[in-house]
Design a protein around this nucleic acid. Structure first.
Lengths: 340, 340
DNA sequence: CTGAAAGCGCTTACAG
DNA sequence: CTGAAAGCGCTTACAG
């Protein structure tokens, strides 16, 4: 009645051959065992009947689904759409479909998503939700499900991933601020269970220490959100109001900082320069246009998918943590160190 | 070796019953035919073995996949993530999974996506890519695949959809501009093959005519993009530079207008007020903060999914085009009519 | 180069 | 309330 009504047997009947011949003729990997003439006839018949394969049947038989899972915290966070698009375009080009789940940073949801995806026989998983110590990663290893981390990594090694050279980004940020004459620089650090939050905070302190500058003007947040950025800078300002620049762990956090400053009558960048991280959409149009560290979101997704596909297809590769270079985008939220 | 190794038969063996009993005990719809005691034993055994059902097998047998397809133009366009999240949350709560495809407004890709999804036995489809005359919609009807339109509708009737009361939005926009003293208002119209572009343009002209105002300061674009908005307002300004307000077909188009104005040394809103449509993310943070018509993106997705699920589960319903009310968000890109 | 058969893991009439 | 059997639409050794 609906989709999938036409099967390989219908095509076989039309051509007058056994359905296994049709199967072979239609499969690129086996069609060379079939006479070119036969292949042509089968193709034509399939076309004529509007046949398309029932993937559930193929999945059941082959125990592979040509589907890849993707775990993200929240599609509505602008960091993720470009990553997913990169994954999707790459996967699709190889005939794979993507199953995405939003986990909202909730371990129960992550677990549920993994089970759902396992039930759907995904061939591999891309994980954008990793904590430094991650139960999902552990399960993948235990179940021998191929996976690739993206954006965030884990503390254990021997994993595949595509992440950012966070130290490079933070150093570029600090060099920029230092060159603008900033002497006291604060950090709104992200959650330390995330490698991005952790590495940015560590790089921040290490580099300032190296420069013989104050390195402990740090406030930690629980999430990479506007609300947390807002709260954090207020706390920071209530302790110390003599810093002239703030490095935020993410763009959303940076926006929260700017919101709080506005409320307190502080100008950005005149009173305090603010730098974000990630370079999500529309930052150049904001007021002020936000200086940030741009990470190659689409490419990271594309690379992660490429690696996962190699893993899935059994191509031998050493576990590799690919660190992609970010780029500082200087806009209008940073300027020479000012006074209050 | 990997996922899905444990089957219903393993559970059956552990309990010491036939696997059909296990199947029935595990299925909420049939478990009432099994003794409560048996159900408990099966549940425990399944839990112990870490069993989860092979959905491909169930799909093959039942000819339903508990998967819903979603067709969007491009995930990276900020209009869509909230819609998808609405769909996803609603579908997931009922045990359904979503398959999303980006079609980039390309009919060939749409077709390919539909075939892929049909191969995966989707139970229904949500279409956010509809043209007023849409081949995919026609195919769904022909194949009796349940579908729901979202955001954009088609000219033929008898379809289900969740869309926006575009006329209401445009009238609110025009009332706002008129109340600010604007006498000559232009429209950067979207593509007319899309119901949103078409209805907005029609509502624009109709309402201004009704108000005895000029209604033909209109320039059409091919896409709802920044680049098209940029080009369109430049064309418009080269013909006529005496209008004081522009209603753009979308927020991206509006941004293109503002970019072009900036380049030409025109201020927004001082010289020309600009209004967008959709209320995508971060508009309130822009420079200037963009006045726009806000459409309930998440809710539209959620509603569409709800309706599709009813359709899929055979609940009788008259075809319904649900028109949701948008809301004018007045921000800083509109002000009293000024002069050049 | 093609055919016949078995089987992937479920569901579901049919019995009892 | 439970069991035994058939079958969903593919793929793939095994023959020939």
């Amino acid at each position: 009645m609906t989709n999938g009504k036409i099967t390989i047997r219908d095509v076989a009947a039309l051509v007058g051959v056994h359905h296994s011949t049709v199967s072979r003729a239609l499969n690129p990997k086996t069609k060379d065992r079939i006479s070119p003439d036969m292949v042509r006839k089968v193709d034509k018949a399939a076309e004529k009947l509007g046949y398309f394969p029932n993937i559930a049947a193929a999945t059941l038989k082959q125990n592979r689904s040509f589907a890849l899972g993707v775990l993200i915290p929240d599609l509505m966070n602008p960091v993720f759409p470009p990553i997913i698009r990169g994954i999707q375009d790459t996967a699709e080009a190889k005939g794979y479909t993507i199953l995405t789940a939003n986990t909202d940073d909730d371990e129960t949801k992550e677990q549920g998503a993994l089970n759902m995806m396992s039930g759907r026989s995904i061939d591999g998983l891309i994980i954008a939700t990793a904590r430094r110590n991650d139960a999902i990663v552990d399960k993948c290893i235990e179940r021998e499900l191929p996976f690739v981390l993206v954006n965030r990594t884990v503390d254990r090694d021997g994993v595949n991933g595509v992440i950012v050279d966070e130290e490079f980004g933070i150093r570029a940020t600090l060099d920029h601020l230092i060159s603008l004459g900033h002497k006291r620089i604060a950090h709104i650090a992200g959650p330390q269970h995330s490698s991005t939050g952790y590495e940015r905070a560590k790089s921040f302190s290490d580099y300032l220490t190296l420069q013989n500058m104050e390195s402990d003007l740090v406030e930690y947040t629980e999430k990479f959100t506007v609300a947390d950025g807002y709260r954090a800078i207020k706390k920071l300002l209530s302790r110390d109001n003599q810093f002239t620049a703030v490095v935020a762990a993410s763009d959303l956090t940076a926006m929260g900082c700017i919101d709080a400053m506005q409320e307190l009558g502080l100008l950005c960048p005149e009173n305090i320069s603010v730098v974000g991280n990630n370079d999500i959409i529309f930052l150049a149009r904001m007021n002020p246009a936000l200086t940030t560290v741009s990470i190659p979101k689409y490419d990271m997704g594309a690379q992660a998918a490429k690696i996962l596909l190699e893993l899935v297809n059994g191509e031998p590769r050493e576990p590799l943590l690919l660190r992609m270079q970010p780029r500082l985008m200087v806009r209008n939220s940073t300027s020479r160190a000012g006074n209050y």
